[in-house]
Amino acid sequence: MIEYIYSSRRASPRSIRIAGLVAAAASATGCINDDIELYEARVRGRVAAASPTAITGTLHLQFHHQMSAGRGALAHPLGEIDRRQVAAVTLPVDIDETLLYPTQAGQGLIVYGWLDRDGDGILCAPGQVDEPAGAGRAADFPSHSLTVDLALTQPCAGAERLYP
């Protein structure tokens, strides 16, 4: 009788399988609401304009995924990660920005920049002067230290027009 009771209390293979399934489900659902993974990258380079004369203004920089991780066919080029402003610069100018790159949201790195010559914060508003823009791909990404040179040669061009 004692042996029977002892044996009945031992875990059966079926109960072990059920416990395994429960554990797998629990680990799949997890207790973490959001798991964010970031990759720190320092982006350095030189931004120059096509104009032979020096032009000044506020430099707007945007960092994009080369390809955003949409679901299935919804994956698309570009996807903004971060943006910065460097006030009162005269091109050409050297940049040095540190970026936290979300690794789960896409791949590749595109840097886009334009020069706000009239200070209105808008790229080429009607009736205003043309403002140069350009984009470049960080070829050696992923790396913690990147070099990207931008040539602002396209007036009034958005990032979507410059890439791909």
């Binding site: 973490i32 609401n33 959001d34 964010i36 970031l38 720190e40 936290l100």
Partner: peptide, 21 residues
């Protein structure tokens, strides 16, 4: 309470921080 984990991979190593919404 929604716990979130943020992992930052730096050149010096991986830094993990937790936050709760």
């Amino acid at each position: 309470l929604l716990p979130s984990r943020t992992r930052i991979e730096r050149a010096s190593g991986i830094e993990t921080t937790w936050s709760v919404q």
